[in-house]
Structures are given as structure tokens and as C-alpha cells.
Nucleic acid binder design. Sequence first.
DNA 1: TTGAAAGCGCTAACAT
DNA 2: ATGTTAGCGCTTTCAA
Lengths: 333, 333
Amino acid sequence: MKKTLKDIAKLAGVSIATVSMVVNNKDDRISAATRARVLEIIKTSDYVPNRVASSMVTKKTKTIGLIIPDIANPFFPEIARGVEDKANAEGYTVILCNSDNKLSKEDAYIEMLQEKMVEGIIFTASSRRTTVSQALLKVRVPVITVDRDIPDLKQQGKITVDNEHGAYEAVTHMLDSGYRQIYHLSGPLTSRTAQERYNGYKRALVSKGITPSSDYMIEGLFTSDWGHETINGIIKSKKPFDGVFCGNDMIALGVLKGLQENNVSVPMDIGIVGFDDIEMAKMVTPELTTVRQPKYEMGYRAAELLLKMIQGEHTDQNEYILKTEFIQRSSTK
Amino acid sequence: MKKTLKDIAKLAGVSIATVSMVVNNKDDRISAATRARVLEIIKTSDYVPNRVASSMVTKKTKTIGLIIPDIANPFFPEIARGVEDKANAEGYTVILCNSDNKLSKEDAYIEMLQEKMVEGIIFTASSRRTTVSQALLKVRVPVITVDRDIPDLKQQGKITVDNEHGAYEAVTHMLDSGYRQIYHLSGPLTSRTAQERYNGYKRALVSKGITPSSDYMIEGLFTSDWGHETINGIIKSKKPFDGVFCGNDMIALGVLKGLQENNVSVPMDIGIVGFDDIEMAKMVTPELTTVRQPKYEMGYRAAELLLKMIQGEHTDQNEYILKTEFIQRSSTK
DNA sequence: TTGAAAGCGCTAACAT
DNA sequence: ATGTTAGCGCTTTCAA
């Protein structure tokens, strides 16, 4: 049967305050004898502390919310893992929410999390969220945005990645390796991420004295299917090219597949570079050259910053721009 | 400022009981006028119901726990998504826990979830968990195991997949396609999953009149690195073979990579079949022939069953064995 | 149709 | 060193 502090107190012949203190290790003022007795009773009488009740009085739920578009999207599991690891290390628990990039779902979750009294929220918002919603306005706990931005949101911390520089570096490498006519297959430019990578691509070309041509820039989706279709179109068009810099690895994988189906040799005829460094990148042949995003670290840092804000520590910095890393593998010379 | 029922009651000039009723839509007995007034006040005065407080009295937290080895392992995100989708649809929230297959972490999470008063737990336990632990014994809520078994656990529902049949079917296909000397690279046979797939492999051979040889069975890890190393060893050994049936897709991907590095043609010289049908399976060239596990459905069904048990509905069935599906792609003839 | 009040299990201030 | 007690914010009888 479910036992409470009161039951234990009765069994041990002490007050419930005493039991509470030993359960919570606030037992400096409790005699060793009583403590031992209480502990013994607790052990033998399957008592489980009710954290819901203690949350009521302490106003701390030791719970944070994590809102991401979709845990099944290979970009997010590692982030989630980073969040959970840090949270768990500090005794916090994380509630997982999949928003599918829908503003309505995001708002519903924000509301729900508030009702459950989470102490903070880590949020990868839809790129269509250009302003704070009603739900967001009511939020009274710290929010850390990851990889996305929410203009005008107060109580915010931010974790992003230097996309522009990562793209610049990657394209520079391609140029240095002799690739000259490099397509950029970009994700939707409404996303800041895609926009920044595009900017890096252009800057790299310009800095080598090449004028970016809009003919070599195609905007689409962050999916391998889109990459696959698009490269097929490019091949059919017969327009000369020798490299493809992709908005992310999914696109790159689609491109690689399309090229291989057409018996184009990668990296000899065409060089491919992706972005993200998802698991799959090193499992294909040839292994994909890409720009690594520190996904685990993004999650870990987000949780770290959030917990600091929760604990009211003075945070000298509430915005982190993490570095990317160029990973040279075999899809480029 | 944070408002409570009491504040709203005062503002509306009614009792807190009244406000409570309208907030919870138990307002059949409340006059339309009062209801409207209360609702209006709530809307204008950013009130957020405190579910922690209501949980105290209703004993329902509308929360379930999900314990898996590692969300960053490509097998789990879809399961998690299935769980979350069903839970969310029923107004439940899910707490994500990564156990790394460590019994100690599993137990710690089980304890924690109980303390947070989750109403049920979905659990993919380590295969080393051969008996119910102390922590598990104290569990008072329904537990659904997914893809794994916990002998002797009461209050259990179970979702598994017909691994034996899936393997049997796959290997039969390979034999029918003309492959004759088929290696089986298996995961650790301590896992029921690996054991069942091995059994299916053997049965398929036997049913075609081939005697399974232990020379063609290698036990290892469910990782692509292991698959990669192992196939390299096989190639070096010069022992003749024309097919590899892998314990999962990760292994298969490692095998494919090793073969390609050695310029062995897949599927002409060697046929490869995996198991799981993870995202990557259709992104490599050639696309991987595999046995699909209904991962999303596993999660969804687990949540469905759990919620039924929570709601005390009579469940005529508390164990589901889901069907696998053979997916013929290009890594076999 | 509405309100008063008990109590969920716990913590923390205050007494003893 | 230990006990008493007042809430935390809410739901739910029961009474009015």
C-alpha cells in the first residue's frame, strides 16, 4: 500500500517533520539514533516520497521542457541527449515535446509546460515564428532557444552555431581543392540557418574572385528527396559543374545517391560537401565531407545555461555561438 | 504576477469552487452569466492553472515515463515519437530517460519517475536485466516493455516484434534469389532479439535443406564498426561466401562499406540483408534490403496499451507481437 | 446555482 | 533534538 510521510512517522514513533528532514538530508539537527531508525523503517516499508507534494510547497518541480520539431529528424536526437544528460546530472527531468514546426502545437506545449510548472524551457522554434505569441508572453520561466531565434522574447538564452563561417570554410576548401563551378542547394531561406550558410557560400566565392551566380543557387528543402530530385534535374540540364555544397547532410546524401545512380564519380568528377555531420555521413561510400555541428554540445550547453538561469546565478553571458568544424572525408578531393 | 484560483475568484466575485468548475469544464451547474464572467476574467488576467496542485488532489499527473537506452541510437527516435504522439493525443506528457543500458541508471530513473508520480512507464530494458530489481518491485503503476522482456514483472504489458519470422523470411528470400553461402553477423546472443533472429536464420537454412554451419555465424555487436571490421576479416580469410544476413542495419551498413572498399559488387557478388529499416537504409547506394520493424507503431501501441491500463480499462490483450515486413531493395538480387 | 471547508502529502518556521 | 502547525493551490463533497 502507498505510504506517506505520516505513515513512516507513526511507524518510527517520531513526527513527520523529523522524517521529512531525514528524507531530505536536512538532518544535521537529528540525532544519529533517530536518523538510523527512520532510515531503517523507510527501507523496509517501500516508502516513495511524493515529489508532487513537495513541489507544491517548494515551488520547484525539478523539471524542464524540451520543445523540438521532431525527435525522429536525425538532427535532434543528439541535442536531446545532451539536454537530458546535463539535466539528469543536476537532478532534473525533461519532458519531450514534438512540435512538427507548427506554431499551434508549439503554443499548446508552452501552455502545458507552464501548467506543469516546469522551471524552464529549451525551445527550437519554427522559423516561421517571427514574433512572440500570446502563449510565449505568459511564460514566467527562462527559455533557451536552440539553433533558432525568437525576436523580442525576454527571459531568453540562446545557443546557435556559426553557420556563416562553417559554410565559408567549407566552400573555401572546395575551391582550394580545385572545384570551380559549385552549386549551392540550400534549405528554405526563410530559415536563418539556411540564409547564413548561403551567405557563407557567397562570401567564399567572392573572396576567391568568383562572382556568385544565381544560376548555381537553388533553394529547396532540407530533405534527401529534394536533393535527389534536384541533382537529377541538374544532370539533365547539362549545365557544367564540378561541386555541390549542400544546405545540410540530408540534401547531400540525396545528391550523392543521384550522382551514383548516374555513374558520376564522387569525388573525382564532382565534389560534395554537406552540413551537420549526422550519423549517416560516415556510413555512406564515399564518406561525406561535411561541416560538423556540435549537436550534443548544443543540447548540453542549452541545459547548462538554463539551469544556471533557473538557479538565479548571475550569467555573464546568455548567448553562445558554437563553432563548427570542417570534416574532410572522401566526397571531396 | 502569478495568479491563483483564489485571485480569479476574488476578481470575479465568486467562490474558488466556482472558478475551479468553470476552468475544468465541470460547469453544468453554473449559470451562463457567471461562467462567462469568470472566463472573461481568466482571459484578461493571464491565469495559468497549477496542475501540480490539482495532481495532489486528483492523484493524476497526466504524465508517463519513457526509459530507453539512448535516444541518439537511430532505433529509438521513432519509437519515442510514436509514444509521444499517442500520449499527447490523450493529454499526457512524456518524460524522457536515457539509461545507456545500465541497470543502475534504469533503476534510478524508475525510482525518480515513481516519485514524480508518473501514471505509467514505457521501458526498453537492458537485456542484462534478467530479473526484477528492488526498484522495479516498488513500482505501483503499469509498465509496458518494448522490444525487451523482464521476466517475472507483474503489472506488465509487452510490445515485441516477430524477429524469428522476420529473419526466416529474409533468409528464405536470399536463398530463393540464389545466394547459398550466407553469413550471419549477429548482435550479442544475450539479447533475445539477436537470439530470435539467429533462430530464424537457421530455420530458413534448414527448411531449404542446408545445414547451418557455425563457421558462418559470427556473434558480435549491433554496430556498424563491428560489421565493418568483421567483413574485412571475412574477406581476408578467403572463405567463400555470397551473402550476409546481418543482425541489424547498422551492422549491414558496416558490411556494405567494407565490401565497397574492397571493390566487391553488391548485390551481384554478394547480397546483403539488414534488419530494422532505419532511415539510412534507403539512403545508401545500393539501397539496403532489410526487414522493417514498425518502430513508430511499437511506440504508439505501447502508449496506447499503457493508457488503457492506466484508465483501468479491461484489456483483453496485454501483449502484442507486431509483424515485420521484408523490404526488397538493391543490396540483394 | 453557488459557497464553505476539508484535505491531498509535504516543507519550513516556530515552539518546545 | 524533535514536535506542532500553517499553508502550497487545487478538487470535491456537502450544505445553503
